[in-house]
């Protein structure tokens, strides 16, 4: 095994610690050491977005971050989107609008869409399409995904009012 470093990080609100080889990407640490297999690997090269997470609120591809870089940071994965057992509106709308077929891209889309709506509560269709352009979906043609994000934005804004 390569040299390992003790990493202490917050994942979905919980403090976790793990020994991390210095050449291991965060995607593998999350999947294999923290046990969060909702984070998916579609490419390992930053091209598909299936591994999307937020790191201190910033949307990143976890396959392009080293596990050791997570030390002292705050991570949210798809597993952290539900609150008190309630689905996040995005999660519910993805189901309601059939925005997933195989669903392997879904965790990445949900994390990326949440990051979008957090910073832009009223995105246009074009803004949604560009914000999600780093997430590949091979099943849906994106139609129902965009509609689900639009519906979620509406619902979240209603709740805010």
């Amino acid at each position: 095994m390569s040299e390992a470093v003790l990493v202490s990080t917050t994942v979905n609100g919980d403090v976790v610690e793990f020994a991390c080889p210095t050449d291991e990407v965060l995607l593998d640490s999350l999947r294999d050491r923290v046990g969060l297999t909702g984070v998916k690997e579609g490419c390992g090269t930053g091209d598909c977005g299936a591994c999307s997470i937020t790191l201190d609120g910033q949307l990143v591809c976890s396959c392009l971050v080293l596990g050791v870089e997570a030390d002292g940071r705050d991570i949210t994965t798809v597993e952290g989107l539900t609150e008190d057992g309630e689905l996040h509106p995005l999660q519910q709308k993805f189901i309601d609008h059939a925005a997933l077929q195989c669903g392997v891209c879904t965790p990445g889309f949900l994390v990326a869409a949440k990051a979008l709506l957090d910073r832009n509560p009223n995105p246009t269709e074009t803004e949604i399409r560009y914000a999600l352009a780093g997430n590949l979906c091979r099943c849906t043609g994106y139609d129902k995904i965009v509609r689900a994000v639009q519906a979620s934005a509406k619902e979240l804004n209603k709740a805010r009012r």
């Binding site: 969060l36 909702g38 994965t77 798809v78 669903g103 965790p107």
Partner: peptide
């Protein structure tokens, strides 16, 4: 299988 798929399970 919707809930499992949107929660990462």
């Amino acid at each position: 299988d919707g809930v499992d798929k949107v929660t990462g399970r």
